[in-house]
Computed example of a mutant assay.
Amino acid sequence: RLRWPRRRPGRGGLRRLLAVLLVLALLAVAAWAAVRFGPRAVDAVRDRTTTPEAVLPSAVVASSEARGHPARSLVDGLNNRYWAPAADRPATGQYVELTFDPPIRLMDLIVHTGASPQQDVFVRQARPAELTLTLWTGDGPSSTRQLRLSDRPGPQTFHHVVGGVTRLRLTIDASYGAQRGREVALAEVEVFRRP
């Protein structure tokens, strides 16, 4: 007659206990990952699936302005008017700053350089060749990025995603066609946020 082998007492209970502990550990790791990486993952998905929308700043100021070319010209929707730094000082180091209230999640920045989109007018004034983009957020220090611009009329797009942006500054680092009697013209800056 057949005899089943005897189980040692407690061995099945130990396996069940280990299985339960393993499941609890996996749930704890999953919960930690959701708290730690969940918001970033949700933001990454939303960034890729939503269409950015244009946003106007609540204020625009500049380190200096040439007569007839105020900082506000940067966001007036017209690319035949422009901001230029004051002519009595070097353009390098001059900046224009946009403030956003409430803060935005920056997605794209479109820059139009020069005095006009028409080539013959475009070349009459100097144009920024390099800009430093500086961003401030409400919960942290500023971040910077170099923007290298082509010497051509028309829009130039820069994709740069940063959340909670309260201020955006564009500082002139270098220029095309700079010479005495010419202003460094920055026609338009379009800012796009995630809705």
Rank of each mutant, 00 (worst) to 15 (best):
A59K: 12
V96I: 01
D43R: 15
S116H: 13
G38W: 05
V45E: 11
Q118I: 03
R48S: 13
V61E: 13
Q119C: 00
D120F: 02
V61G: 02
V96G: 01
L56C: 02
S63L: 00
L106T: 12
N80G: 04
T113K: 05
R46N: 11
D88H: 09
G77R: 07
V60W: 05
P117K: 10
G93K: 07
I110W: 04
A87R: 11
N79M: 07
G77C: 07
P52V: 04
R89C: 05
Q119I: 05
S63V: 01
R67H: 03
S73F: 02
A91W: 00
S73I: 00
G114Y: 05
A86G: 05
A59M: 06
P52E: 13
V45H: 09
S116F: 03
V61K: 04
I104C: 10
R81G: 05
D88C: 03
R89K: 14
R89A: 15
L98W: 07
D88I: 00
L98A: 10
D120G: 01
S64D: 10
A44Q: 15
T50F: 03
F122D: 07
V60E: 13
V96N: 04
E97I: 00
Y95T: 11
T92Y: 00
G68M: 11
D47Q: 11
H69M: 13
N79T: 14
Q118R: 13
S58I: 01
F122A: 08
T51C: 01
A84M: 01
A84R: 01
W83M: 07
D120I: 01
P70C: 05
P90V: 00
A44T: 15
L106C: 12
V55F: 09
R105G: 10
M107E: 15
G68E: 12
R40S: 12
D76C: 11
V55A: 12
G114D: 10
L56E: 14
A44H: 14
G114M: 09
A59W: 05
A54D: 06
V55Y: 13
R81S: 14
V61N: 06
V55G: 12
M107S: 15
A59Q: 15
A59N: 12
P103N: 09
M107W: 13
P39G: 07
V96R: 02
T113R: 07
D101Y: 05
T49S: 10
E97P: 00
P52H: 08
S64G: 08
V60G: 06
G114P: 06
E53S: 06
A115N: 09
R48L: 14
N80R: 15
V45T: 09
I110H: 07
S73Y: 03
L106S: 12
N80M: 08
V121H: 04
R124S: 11
L98K: 08
D43N: 14
R67F: 01
E53K: 04
N79Q: 11
M107Q: 15
A54V: 08
Q118A: 10
I110P: 00
V75I: 12
P90S: 05
N80E: 11
Q118G: 03
R89H: 10
R105Q: 15
